[in-house]
Design a protein around this nucleic acid. Structure first.
Lengths: 215, 215
DNA sequence: GCCTTTCGATACGACACTGTATCGGATACA
DNA sequence: TGTATCCGATACAGTGTCGTATCGAAAGGC
């Protein structure tokens, strides 16, 4: 089982590989159903490595949730930067929905992201630590999206129907639910429709909602 | 542990008690973490009774999910009937949000309902059977809410911004997410705020969204 | 190049849960 | 009241997982 790759011999490397494996396994079978053994097997280690790096599955999950959250926020922020850099002349009329859609589809394009966020959210319904982390990440996301909306409004001189914060809140709400529904629909007709269709459905729905909320 | 009550000696009674117990335990610790033993203990039975009535925990969950779904739909339909019965003169100006809020807060007032629906939904992300059941229930709910919106519009002669179906979809989306967030917030500041505050927060948010979407 | 330290593998004991097979008592019916 | 049936309790074997304790080997310091 020891892979051909054992070049970098750092502890951090092991940790990250375990986190990656855990992410995959959690998405596949859920947090509770994921045994420590399954995680280690996927990472190419044995349980010895696990307990050498983490005290428990819960601790690993907490760290993983933090990583996922910060990754998502970072991704959105990166896109914000890209938009700002585009400058005042970068937009065409009616592209608002499209831009927001593009910004928000961080995580919508991968089934795993949806599964993982769902796992984090359901954990947040019972664990105070996870709950706080979840809310913090959510607030950060809202702030970023609100910033985008504000920027676009300023650039184009548009006056939206609601303040940016509330609009961002609604957008994120709609987006999140749409992504989940898309995955569920894919599971229902187990034809395993490709990611493309999933993205398209989510995107279309979001565009509609954005238009409705903002314009 | 055998309760004082063993008057009705029907098999169906046992089944229902097991389903009720399962509902509570699922809400508390989640589906995977809920052992058959824990469910039986709460119901006041031993595992013998369980396996005499259900083939497995999964089968029980499927039946429970069906029961919960039909209960929710029935509750909403009952409220629809009440509204229709109220007649054309039953509404005051600006009460649309309040009415929708009232209709939708089926399940929002209890933490257990939110936890249970989350459990069903996360299961729907992996199990085709649950996925189909989930989508069916969701479609039915949408249909009912759309009907309410249509009726109200007709009664008051209001022309909404969007068609009733889409509005219902958005309303349900916002409501669902708001309910989940409210519970998470309650978990985050573990002061265990009462249900009242939770309902209030959810209701206020929903009212805002309803106004935004419809008017 | 030796020695210390670190890190992951292996081995072990314990435990929780599952599903089945059997048993005893209560219920229904005549 | 006697008998057949049903249903839930009890007993049991099997399995998977956990956390720890120990060991061997590779990495890093001097």
């Amino acid at each position: 089982m020891s892979d051909v790759k054992a070049p970098t011999r750092s502890r951090e490397n092991t940790r990250q590989r375990l986190l990656d494996a855990a992410m995959a396994v959690f998405a596949e079978v859920g947090l509770d159903a994921a045994s420590v053994e399954a995680i280690c097997e996927r990472a190419g280690f044995t349980r010895g490595a696990f307990y050498s790096n983490f005290a428990s599955k819960d601790e690993l999950f907490l760290q993983l949730a933090a990583r996922v959250a910060s990754d998502r926020v970072a991704a959105v922020q990166a896109r914000v930067g890209g938009l700002v850099a585009a400058g005042p002349g970068g937009f065409d009329e009616g592209e608002i929905s499209a831009i927001l859609e593009q910004v928000l589809d961080v995580g919508a394009d991968d089934r795993m992201g949806v599964l993982l966020m769902s796992e984090i959210r359901i954990r947040a319904l019972r664990d105070p630590d996870v709950a706080r982390a979840f809310l913090a990440q959510d607030a950060e996301m809202q702030r970023n999206v609100a910033q985008i909306i504000t920027d676009i409004g300023a650039l184009k001189g548009i006056e939206f129907r609601v303040d940016a914060a509330q609009a961002a809140h609604l957008m994120l709400t709609v987006w999140e639910t749409a992504a989940v529904r898309a995955v569920i629909r894919g599971v229902a007709d187990e034809s395993e429709r490709g990611e493309a269709a999933l993205r398209a459905a989510t995107g279309a729905h979001l565009a509609e909602a954005a238009h409705l909320i903002l314009c």
